[in-house]
Simulated scan of single mutants.
Amino acid sequence: MVDYAAARTNMVESQLRTNRVWDQRLLEAFETLPREAFVPEKARRFAYIDEDLAIGQNRHLMEPMVLARLIQAAAIGEEDMVLDLGCGLGYSTAVLARLAATVVAVEQIGEFVTAATQALDALEITNAVVVQETLTKGYAKQAPYDVILLGGAVAEVPQEIQDQLAEGGRLVTVLLDKDGLGRATLMRKDEGVVSGRVLFDAATPVLPGFERKDGFVF
Rank of each mutant, 00 (worst) to 15 (best):
V194C: 07
Q132E: 13
D201Q: 09
Q162D: 14
T93R: 06
V193T: 07
G138D: 00
G110L: 08
T126L: 08
G110Q: 11
L150A: 05
R188P: 00
P144Q: 06
P144D: 02
A153V: 07
D179V: 04
I148A: 10
E160V: 15
A94W: 01
L181A: 15
L175I: 15
G209A: 06
V106S: 00
V198E: 15
L89H: 02
L176R: 09
T185C: 11
L175C: 12
E107P: 03
A143T: 06
G182E: 13
A101N: 11
L186W: 01
S195D: 10
L135N: 04
L207S: 07
A105K: 00
R188F: 01
S195E: 12
V131D: 01
V103Q: 11
L186F: 03
P158D: 14
T114N: 07
E133Q: 14
S195F: 13
E124R: 14
G169W: 14
F200N: 09
E191Y: 03
R170L: 14
A143G: 04
V131P: 00
E107F: 00
R98N: 09
A100R: 07
L149M: 07
T173P: 04
V172F: 03
E124H: 09
G196T: 04
E107T: 00
A122C: 02
D179R: 15
C87E: 05
A128C: 09
V157L: 01
P158V: 05
P144M: 08
T117I: 01
E167Q: 15
C87I: 07
T173H: 12
K189L: 11
A143F: 06
V194M: 06
Q132I: 04
L175N: 10
Q164V: 00
L165T: 07
A143Q: 02
R98K: 13
V147N: 12
A94D: 02
L175D: 06
G138T: 03
K189E: 10
V157I: 14
E111H: 09
G209S: 01
G180S: 12
L199P: 09
A94M: 03
A119L: 08
F112M: 12
T126G: 04
T204C: 13
D146P: 00
T114D: 14
F210E: 02
G152M: 06
E167H: 12
M187D: 04
L89P: 01
L186H: 04
L149I: 12
D121I: 01
A122D: 11
L199I: 04
L149Q: 03
E156R: 10
G169L: 12
F200E: 15
K137C: 02
T136A: 11
V113M: 05
Y145M: 01
Q108H: 14
E160A: 15
L150K: 01
A128W: 01
R170E: 08
F112E: 00
G110D: 10
V206P: 03
I109H: 12
T114K: 07
E160R: 01
V104E: 04
V104Q: 05
Y139M: 05
L186V: 11
V106W: 10
V147K: 14
D177R: 14
G209N: 03
T185N: 08
Y91E: 09
V103R: 04
L123Q: 13
E111D: 15
A105G: 11
Q159M: 12
A105E: 07
R183N: 15
E167G: 11
L99G: 05
L120F: 03
G182M: 06
R183H: 15
